[in-house]
């Protein structure tokens, strides 16, 4: 069951900072809608997504999911990150069923179905460290889906993958979300990813972080990347983005190196 999301004038200032990172962000998302959030590095996309997930609380304003105010994280709205961050001491299956374990439930049949859904049925007992990056991200997807979330939040989930795997997973996640009737919010640096997955693209600008515009992508799904309409939508989004936050140069897709700007703490 998909959930509606409404963000009511969120303003957030990190501790020890004078300027707000997010200012008066307002948006509403229909149940089952797939929304992409694009913007330059550091404009506050991840911060906003953390607030939707309840992993951070805004200093002002609030988030409602299906009419309920978000005050803490819940397995009902699930976030996926750029890194799959699986638990290496658990098998693929154990990772996938962790959310159910926390909820005190067991449902092996559902986990089987989910692993099948993400194409990893034959890897159920494998060590997650022996999987490729794409396969690991699929496990993370299965883990997110296991608790039957209503809302899936994705923070650049495919940016560490090669182009082919990325395209395959974009289609797959988009398809699964439609099939399972999830609301989807995906943060991305990648114009292509936004056009490939979203019904609507929100464009954010920095200092302070705010939504400056949006564009509907009115194309049938699954998206046909080689089609003329796709290219047109892509071009139009780039132009819109440049017009709203660009500085004349081609600012479309800040490349992978900008991700390093994010505070990366040492992985264990």
């Amino acid at each position: 069951m998909a959930a509606s999301v409404s963000v009511d004038f969120i303003t957030h200032t990190f501790k020890g900072q004078s300027a707000p990172t997010l200012k008066d962000v307002e948006l509403s998302i229909r149940p089952g809608e797939q929304v992409a959030l694009i913007g330059r590095s550091g404009c506050g996309k991840s911060t906003l997504l953390h607030m939707l997930a309840g992993l951070m609380l805004p200093t002002e304003g609030c988030v409602h999911i299906r009419g309920h105010m978000v005050t803490k994280p819940s397995a009902k709205w699930n976030m996926m990150f750029q890194k799959p961050s699986l638990y290496p001491w658990m098998s693929v299956r154990q990772n996938a069923e962790l959310g159910l374990l926390f909820a005190g439930r067991r449902d092996p049949a559902r986990i089987d179905a989910l692993l099948d859904l993400v194409g990893l049925a034959d890897k159920a007992d494998a060590n997650v460290q022996s999987l490729s990056g794409g396969q690991q991200q699929r496990v993370a997807l299965a883990r997110s889906l296991a608790t039957s979330p209503e809302l899936l939040l994705l923070d650049e989930p495919f940016s560490a993958l090669d182009a082919f795997t990325r395209a395959a997973l974009q289609d797959e996640v988009s398809r699964i979300a439609r099939q399972e009737k999830l609301t989807l919010v995906i943060v991305t640096h990648d114009i292509d990813e936004a056009v490939a997955m979203a019904d609507r693209v929100l464009i954010m600008a920095a200092n302070p972080g705010r939504i400056v515009g949006e564009m509907a992508i009115d194309l049938p799904t699954p998206r046909e990347r080689a089609s003329a309409e796709y290219s047109r939508a892509r071009e139009q989004l780039m132009t819109t983005f440049d017009g709203l936050v660009g500085d004349g140069r081609s600012t479309a897709a800040p490349s992978a190196d900008t991700q390093d700007a994010e505070p990366q703490r040492a992985a264990a």
Partner: peptide, 14 residues
Amino acid sequence: RIDPLWFKVARNLG
């Protein structure tokens, strides 16, 4: 040395 994301993911999973 625990990856902070491991905490985040677990909290998110309830």
